[in-house]
Design a protein around this nucleic acid. Sequence first.
DNA 1: CTCGCTGCAAAATCTTTGCATCAGA
DNA 2: TCTGATGCAAAGATTTTGCAGCGAG
Lengths: 167, 167
Amino acid sequence: MPPTSRQAAAQARPRRCRPGFAGPAPDFAALAASLAGHGLRTTAPRRALFALLAGHPQGITVAEAIVAMRDAGIGQATVYRTLGLFETIGIIYCVHGADGRHRFIPWRPGHMHALVCRVCGQAVEFDACGLQVLERLLASETGYEIEGHHVEVFGRCPACRTRAGGT
Amino acid sequence: MPPTSRQAAAQARPRRCRPGFAGPAPDFAALAASLAGHGLRTTAPRRALFALLAGHPQGITVAEAIVAMRDAGIGQATVYRTLGLFETIGIIYCVHGADGRHRFIPWRPGHMHALVCRVCGQAVEFDACGLQVLERLLASETGYEIEGHHVEVFGRCPACRTRAGGT
DNA sequence: CTCGCTGCAAAATCTTTGCATCAGA
DNA sequence: TCTGATGCAAAGATTTTGCAGCGAG
């Protein structure tokens, strides 16, 4: 089976999780500022990828990005380069999803994380403040200077639980 | 492959996770039991990889495993197959490290996670019980059935902080 | 006007697969 | 013995790299 068909469907059909969540208004000014702050240029491919990411708070895979960007005439090399660059300057971060694939997820104000349904891909964001407490605790207990964390929580959303039953 | 249900079961209970997979001394009996429980055979390559993992609680990359196993006359295909198999039956889990590379980490009693120094790679384990609280909270707030999580916290260990100063 | 950025396609890596043979239960 | 498991090597994916032209600053 074509492995990305599920994600493709998910992104083709714009689903709303809850109010205030899927706000795909790409803040190009912020992008430009981030880039400029690192001495980098703001180009069309970078804006396009940024917009794509902004529209997918639950993250996208490299393959999805390549497909989407190809439709805009952007080469895969640029996708890889830009993704790596965004990660370097802190616009996105990389996790791997429940299926083991890398996903690039945009950082959002308030330090949110995504709770992803492994069946339909729908995502809900949550505040990770509990982890900040954990980080402080770890810092004091271990002497480490904590620089960051990756978190991913996955499960099944209410709709998929109802649909599939208690497997 | 029906994934993650094992992890869900493992973390449903607060502390105990996989009784028997303890400590740096490879518990081959536990390995054999896990394999047998899935109708799989206990072979020399599987024991060797298991021992390697047991000796690296902070996890190993595929490349490291391939190199180490090659010295034992074990082919790379077997390493990939065995790693995937171990993940399926819940002996190890996969995260990606601070450097973005996949790391395979052995499950250990108490559901520990690693706090990794991004400079020297030294790791300290910690109990993630705070996340279990978070998971319960998320479940009740969102209606999701939580199946598992990945967490990685990274920073600089005391030694590296001293060495490198306050960069 | 300058150099950083890009698309294209080849090159380098990383993973998976097919198959004959070996060995665990 | 009977299959599952393995090693080897080829096939298939994925990611990186080289380069000349384009365009942001």
